[in-house]
Amino acid sequence: MNIKQKDTPTPLLQVRGLCKYFPVYSKGFLRKQIGVVKASDNINFNLMPGETLGLVGESGSGKTTTGRSILRAIKPSAGEVILNYKNNPIDLTKIHHKDLKKLRPYMQMIFQDPFSSLNPRMTVRDIVAEPLIIHKMAKGSELEDRVSRMMKKVGLKPEHRTRYPHAFSGGQRQRIGIARALIMNPALIVCDEAVSALDVSVQAQVINLLQDLQQELGLTYIFIAHDLSVVKHICDRVAVMYAGKIIEIASTNDIFDNPMHPYTKALLSAVPSPDPDQPMNMSLSGEVADPGNLPPGCAFAPRCELRSDECEQRIPDLEQKPNGRYVACHRGTGLRDSVIPG
């Protein structure tokens, strides 16, 4: 793998044509493979160190599959995920799983469900210390010391180390999960809906914690979420996914102030605002596309008000626009005039 060094800083992560297809089998005894579900299809993006990239989409958009394929929690079907590991570009998709173990401390995940992501039969201390034990990074009093420091850092009391997860509330459990992910000093964190299961008042605490930790430790986040207001708050750039593909990727301000893809626009208008003076104004009809049964052209075409014949026949490519922005829409040129009236 030859990655040329340029003047610009090297991305921490380069995702190139990442695909994850799940086979579909016929019914019956022989179970022949009759097709694939393209859970995530041809995903491309770069991630700079210290950046937070939001991965946004509705159910079935493939955002979780993409996140897990990047960390190789599931093996991708095709594509490259190039991690810049101590100035060594390493393709995570090709690497043998034994070598993968060495890279694990470098990239971690925070899960959505604070109830199922912690082993109910292990104490907090065992959960937080486990990464260090697996990688033989610390022993004895040093281990206990690091666990205590980490627990303090995420806002847990070290004296609660001998308790089991069920003794904690949802927000505190999520802090335990964060402590487990951060104790090895990773560079890359994939937050898979890390705050969606939490109550509003606790959600704000966890968002603040994630932001503080990012500043303090220089973390890079991939923040998978369906809640756009949270994404706007925490992300530098946002990739919007629909039916397994990225349909628009741009800086957070561009996405939220001037969405170019009709789906992004619809998604933004669908968020109910807590201000009663800002009525919801979403005109999108129809159902979220089923990745197992996609139309031949643009997956969004059946719901799109601007569709043309071309949209129904040909899948649009992700095209570069000014400001490092990419949009996958045939109607991309002159879209602003036709979509946003006045």
Partner: peptide, 26 residues
């Protein structure tokens, strides 16, 4: 497929550790 088993895998835990430490006690 529980998240905590996936988490253990992502931490780099060996198969034996996942089975005996995370799965069987469950």
């Amino acid at each position: 497929e529980e998240d905590y088993a996936v988490a253990a895998r992502l931490l780099g835990a060996s198969h034996g550790r996942i089975i005996f430490r995370h799965l069987i006690p469950g």
